[in-house]
Design a protein around this nucleic acid. Structure first.
Lengths: 184, 184
DNA sequence: TTCGTCATGTAATGGGTTACATGATTAC
DNA sequence: GTAATCATGTAACCCATTACATGACGAA
């Protein structure tokens, strides 16, 4: 469960929550705003859009929602969220829990924290932290086990990975305490 | 060109350069030592091993190369590099250049820097640095362009990504100056 | 006139994960 | 006795990238 496609659905719905957009712009925002989808291709995005359309979560915006097409006469198809789509997005945001989440899942869900309940936010942040701590434990154990047969470069790479992960844990810790303050 | 499979070939060859190993252990080291392959499955590794065997780059080690099987009677197949395999690895390490490299390619090649010529090391490090700087430029431009419609959480995620990338650039800078000192 | 950007799509290929199959041993 | 780890593999499914097709505008 929880395929990559579901995450893309969620991300698209979330971006369209802000403002209606057409596919081309949607892709750019997915590539930059969200850490994941760094190399998302049209071959993935457009079929996804068609699917969301079929499910009734988005619709083609009629009328001049955005300014008229600049720079191209090719018809732009602007999509907007339907009521069902809003509901769907909220359901996904509300029931989110880091059951075997990777980096991408966290990044995307974090990007939409503004529309996520505090309780869920806390659960996600804490889940993320424990996953990173597991990863740290594995890295540290490996560097102890292979200390002798590891050259300087391998060691440097490992140390850098370790430090980055530690920094992210501290970052999460700050967010978690801030979140606890909000809750109380 | 330069498929994921090639990278796996390179990584396996590189690990076997250190010491003969069987598949199960190989996978563990690929999952921890190298940043990439964090979730490499046997479904990818064993076919790869078979392929390398067919190409004559690795062979089944005969005799008691490793201690006898502990904890299992199931026959372990220990692989070792052939002369051709060593040559192949060295060719891949020597002609490496970051033409459209992602994070994984860099990590794996970096892990084997000890067996990479200084000139190539420098080229790789500098290539990596410019890729990260491109990424930074994109992030920064995006955060300027979308400043208003970005909520606090999205902004925090973006800032964290920016800072991590900046740290990695500084890390690379240190490595580059160290490398230049070696060369001269 | 050519390159880059805007803009939307489709088809095929490649390949990685998931799930399955097997089986012995150690530790609780 | 049962869960976890060791250990090797195969087959199918999923799906993401890649390459292709189309077409116009602005700038150098």
């Amino acid at each position: 469960m929880s395929r990559r496609a579901d995450l893309l659905d969620f991300a698209v719905l979330g971006l369209l929550h802000e403002t209606p957009m057409h596919g081309y712009e949607l892709r750019k925002r997915l590539n930059t705003a969200l850490g994941a989808f760094r190399a998302l291709s049209y071959g993935s995005l457009y079929p996804c859009l068609r699917e969301l359309l079929g499910k009734g979560w988005i619709r083609e915006a009629t009328g001049a929602v955005e300014g008229p097409a600049r720079g191209s006469t090719r018809a732009r198809i602007v999509y907007e969220l339907t009521a069902d789509g809003k509901e769907r997005f909220q359901t996904m945001a509300d029931k989110a829990g880091p059951a075997s989440w990777g980096d991408e899942e966290f990044d995307v869900h974090f990007a939409f924290f503004a529309r996520t309940p505090t309780e869920v936010r806390l659960r996600i942040l804490e889940g993320r932290r424990s996953r990173l701590e597991e990863r740290l434990a594995i890295i540290r154990e490996a560097s102890v086990r292979n200390r002798e047969r590891m050259d300087n470069y391998t060691a440097a790479l490992q140390r850098h990975g370790e430090e980055s992960t530690e920094r992210e844990v501290r970052w999460l810790e700050e967010l978690i305490t801030a979140e606890r303050k909000i809750r109380s």
